[in-house]
Amino acid sequence: LVRYRTISKIPQITLNFVDLKGDPFLASPTSDREIIAPKIKERTHNVTEKVTQVLSLGADVLPEYKLQAPRIHRWTILHYSPFKAVWDWLILLLVIYTAVFTPYSAAFLLKETEEGPPATECGYACQPLAVVDLIVDIMFIVDILINFRTTYVNANEEVVSHPGRIAVHYFKGWFLIDMVAAIPFDLLIFGSGSEELIGLLKTARLLRLVRVARKLDRYSEYGAAVLFLLMCTFALIAHWLACIWYAIGNMEQPHMDSRIGWLHNLGDQIGKPYNSSGLGGPSIKDKYVTALYFTFSSLTSVGFGNVSPNTNSEKIFSICVMLIGSLMYASIFGNVSAIIQRLYSGTARYHTQMLRVREFIRFHQIPNPLRQRLEEYFQHAWSYTNGIDMNAVLKGFPECLQADICLHLNRSLLQHCKPFRGATKGCLRALAMKFKTTHAPPGDTLVHAGDLLTALYFISRGSIEILRGDVVVAILGKNDIFGEPLNLYARPGKSNGDVRALTYCDLHKIHR
């Protein structure tokens, strides 16, 4: 019993810090008490220290592992850092350059016999395009090294910054494609005289377009951006097909006994025919423009016929181009109408809503002055909100995010209106959640004399007048207030005048 009563005193000691020596009952000389009392004092002292730490809000209350900052290894790049964003855009520009100039170089340097010394005699450094290609190869190699040090988000939505895990993730992902696209074939085969082989191998750079397509997928929600990307894709495919079309004609031209190829026909049409040795002929500019003209006309199913396939190889390629053109029509131009419709969806919704308003007016036989006010209010409210119901949009977000959005939407009023000066951010967040926005066209009466005042109004834009009878008592403008002081009276009061809008007004109100 003594032991039980001794232990039962522990909660009292913990909360009230009572010393055991003052209790005459606990001072009985028993061996059990002498053993338990020192333990009680020690526990009391420890609990006292913990309570003191909690009340003082000291940093040592938290466990040590929670006080440590997340460790980022040296030379690790955050995937959302500004440097990584700028670097990704730079790589994107280099990939676009590669997609345009690599097929052009591979096709127009394929057994090209233009006048001038061969590239091997001039030297590697004197070729501007080769120098640019070398810079692109170096940048792609540097990009691989950067990807080995860039964080990523795993399946659990955690940012991984450990170098080993980053390397394994990159090896399992895009490393092989990036490595093949970054191989400097110019340096590996330079001086061997195989410019045709170098041009063909350099087309491996186009593998990076797969990554670019995935990154550009984030802009699919913007109709104008999608339309622009589709047109660029169409032009890029036409450019690639033009390079292939020229390569076919250029390879067949020296081996044909009869002059029936499209390059021969082009030379005869523009007065620059090929001679018996295969030299001469149109310039590279004429060849490229004509090839691009043929691919565009074939892809769009126009086909004027002034550039036509004559050999079997050219006919087979033309059939493939027609098939590609039909697929592009289905996948690209078939979506253009939907994209344009999405661009004008706001206008369509406006006309639909206006039609419903006019049908309501016609069905209920609203008189002319009231009908005009109804239409003007709808037009003004639509121009202010673009038909978007803010309350319906915010309803799907958590309250903390709703408060931040409301604070942002009402920031101008909260910053410049005098009653809100000096208020804490928590108070402003709470008030912003209570605001209701209303609009009024010129001549609209917001409050009639004798109406119950259940709200306090803040003028965000425009001006109003307060009338008693036919006498203008006051004219209020931006950041002015009218209405009933909230919670100042037990019952809502009545208006002693009319409140009429002089201009288009936007008002925020808080109800009782």
Rank of each mutant, 00 (worst) to 15 (best):
R342S: 06
A291G: 01
V100D: 01
A125M: 12
A224D: 10
L229M: 09
L145V: 10
V180I: 11
G443V: 02
T102V: 07
K84A: 03
H408D: 01
V357L: 07
K84D: 01
D88P: 01
S283E: 01
R218W: 05
T98P: 01
F140Q: 01
S283F: 01
W262H: 01
V212L: 13
R358P: 03
N312E: 01
A69F: 10
T424Y: 03
N410G: 03
A440L: 08
L370W: 01
L409H: 01
I244L: 04
A119S: 13
F234S: 01
Y288R: 01
N386D: 04
I144T: 05
F435E: 02
P70M: 06
L188H: 14
S383Y: 15
P70N: 11
H162E: 09
F190R: 14
D143S: 01
N265H: 13
Q68P: 08
L394K: 02
S258D: 06
G396M: 10
M179H: 03
K66Y: 15
G199P: 04
R208T: 10
T438Y: 10
C400W: 11
L374G: 03
L188D: 09
T76Q: 05
G193C: 05
L176H: 04
Q365E: 03
L428T: 12
G173E: 01
N368H: 14
P441C: 14
A432I: 08
F304R: 01
M139F: 14
L188K: 09
L323A: 05
L188N: 10
V142Q: 03
D444W: 08
Q365Y: 01
C400Q: 01
F175I: 01
L216D: 01
A242Q: 01
A423Q: 05
S258L: 09
K287R: 04
L413N: 01
K172A: 04
Y246V: 09
G305P: 06
I198P: 10
R74L: 05
C400Y: 10
P70L: 09
G223N: 04
N335Y: 13
P442L: 03
L323W: 11
F171H: 01
G303Q: 01
I138G: 02
A181C: 03
A440Q: 08
P273I: 01
Q402R: 05
S161C: 13
Y222S: 05
P367W: 01
D143A: 01
T233G: 14
C417A: 09
K425V: 07
G443F: 01
E314H: 01
Y97M: 01
K66E: 07
P117T: 12
A182K: 01
G271R: 01
I138V: 07
A125Y: 13
S313A: 15
H380T: 09
V136R: 11
F234C: 04
T203R: 01
L229W: 08
A213C: 09
L206Y: 01
L355K: 08
A130M: 05
V289K: 01
I135E: 01
A106P: 01
G325P: 01
E112P: 14
M322G: 02
V336P: 03
A440R: 07
K395D: 07
F175P: 01
E195T: 15
R362Q: 05
K436Q: 12
D286S: 01
H73V: 05
R218I: 05
L446E: 01
P128N: 03
Y293G: 01
R165K: 14
E359R: 08
S301R: 07
V321I: 15
Y288H: 01
I270C: 01
L94S: 13
T295E: 01
